[in-house]
Nucleic acid binder design. Sequence first.
DNA 1: CTATTATCCTATCGGAATAGTAGGATTTAA
DNA 2: TTAAATCCTACTATTCCGATAGGATAATAG
Lengths: 135, 135
Amino acid sequence: MLSKKTKYGLKALTFLARQENFSPVQIGVISQHENISQKFLESILLTLRKNGFLGSKKGKGGGYYLLRDPKDIKMSAVMRILEGPIAMVPCVSLNFYEKCEDCPNEKTCSVHKLMMEVRDSTLNIFNNKSLADII
Amino acid sequence: MLSKKTKYGLKALTFLARQENFSPVQIGVISQHENISQKFLESILLTLRKNGFLGSKKGKGGGYYLLRDPKDIKMSAVMRILEGPIAMVPCVSLNFYEKCEDCPNEKTCSVHKLMMEVRDSTLNIFNNKSLADII
DNA sequence: CTATTATCCTATCGGAATAGTAGGATTTAA
DNA sequence: TTAAATCCTACTATTCCGATAGGATAATAG
């Protein structure tokens, strides 16, 4: 299941991508338009900023704005920042790999192989979809 | 992320599918071979039985066994029983549909469209993979 | 210089879900 | 009749998610 954090983050990003000239938009404006708790959204935008997707401006007339062209923001990157691993099992994750404690041998594990396929097909979508594509 | 419940359930199913003549296998035997807590596995096998995948036999010489040919057990069916919805968002689920409270219009929601694609590609795998395929 | 407006940041909290446990009831076979 | 197995309900511990609180900091307007 997609976390609300990710869902809200994606909605905020598309909202910002639809702005005219990427001028700063206040958190409150986004949260109202997208029906998101303002305080929760605040923390989400903060992590998007810390990860180089958004810029921010403080004080009057401030807010958040996109730092890059929506075409250059891949869904896979956003998903990894907000949701974490794209794979359904850590032992299959490319960026968040972890060995399963219970599994003695990955190569012969049926779950492993199945989840590799799922990861590949999902990754194929996320890698080839940009923010511009989903507006 | 795949729950351990699903992961263990899949492992148990493949273990049973590898048996010679589908004669009853005790919980303890499966839990040892697959490194799964016996009590936890017990509850998982119970739901697999209640959903028509497994049969059971009580008393000495008892255990669990596959009720159907592994070729006829689709991954999508197993996933839905153990994991729940295959979609990442309820508003995109075929079998567990729920409307999002925050979203006024699904047709124009960018997250909705993106997650439809992911669901389709994942479902395509799970629908075309049987227990026999992953052994 | 000051008041206002906004983001920044840390800490916390309740509730739900997950993973696992306990313990006895029931059924079957030897 | 005893031992071996599943059956079943309830409980618990822990973790994670979604959300909130409250002040610190910075920028702008006047």
